Simulated scan of single mutants.
Amino acid sequence: MEKMPVLGSNASSSSSSPSTAIGSRFSTLNKSFKFALRSLLTSCSKEEFFKAFSSFTNTEKDFLHRLFLQVITSLHEDIEEDFDAICLNTQVGATLDAVEEIVEEQDLDLLFSNRSNIVDVAENLSMAKKNEIQHLMHMVQLGEEHNQRLRNQLQLLKEGSQVLSGGSHVVEKQVRSMNLNYGANSSDEMHDV
């Protein structure tokens, strides 16, 4: 299957590069765009083109194919020029160069290169929070156990005071009884005298 000829890069578009000192990121972007554009515009083979015009004669097919190639070449050049102009106007080259410089600086920065990725940070934070929750739950449990001991002691004290209170009532009754008995005995003795 014969593919259409590969279109060469436009000399005028390559000389009007958006940045005088093209960094590798912009160069890669530029090459990738032009390769993708070329692939899109040349994806139709000559045989496929002829199949699309099967009712035409071979001479007409050849003429249409040459016309098609001229349109594709012109379109390719126009799109490349527009792409280069957009890159120049939006300063894509300078921006990508700045990004490349930042990446290189980060590669040289030992602290940055030793940093964990976001997933590790999230896992560490999650584990720390789980540990903190377990610690707090343990503290709450200890507090509840302490409160229960205090309640038990309070209950024992209440029961002890009730026993003492009951005992004091018994003692009080006996004292009254003794007082009454003493009073009765002393009045009997007074009557006897």
Rank of each mutant, 00 (worst) to 15 (best):
H135M: 11
L136V: 06
D84G: 15
G143D: 05
L154E: 04
Y182A: 05
R25L: 12
H65M: 07
P5C: 08
K51S: 10
V6H: 09
K31P: 00
L7E: 00
S14L: 14
T42P: 00
F33R: 01
L64P: 03
S19P: 02
K31S: 11
Q148A: 12
A36S: 11
E132M: 14
H169E: 04
K129W: 15
Q106I: 07
V193F: 14
A94K: 12
A94S: 06
N185D: 14
D82G: 15
A94V: 14
G23L: 01
M178T: 07
F112K: 04
V140Q: 03
D120Q: 13
N58I: 09
N114K: 08
S187C: 07
D97I: 02
L7D: 00
L180Y: 10
F33T: 00
Q106T: 04
T59D: 10
Q134C: 14
N181P: 03
S113K: 08
A128S: 12
V140P: 03
K129C: 15
S187R: 12
E60H: 07
R151A: 07
M190K: 12
T28K: 11
M127S: 15
A184C: 07
S24L: 10
F112V: 01
K51P: 02
K129Y: 14
V175W: 07
Q153P: 00
M4L: 04
L110R: 12
F112R: 00
L108Q: 13
S13D: 04
K46N: 02
S39P: 02
L154D: 07
R151Y: 03
L88W: 10
F63L: 08
K173D: 09
T95R: 05
A94M: 11
E144F: 10
V140Y: 07
S45P: 00
F83Y: 03
E48V: 05
D188C: 15
R176W: 09
V170L: 13
G93D: 01
N10W: 05
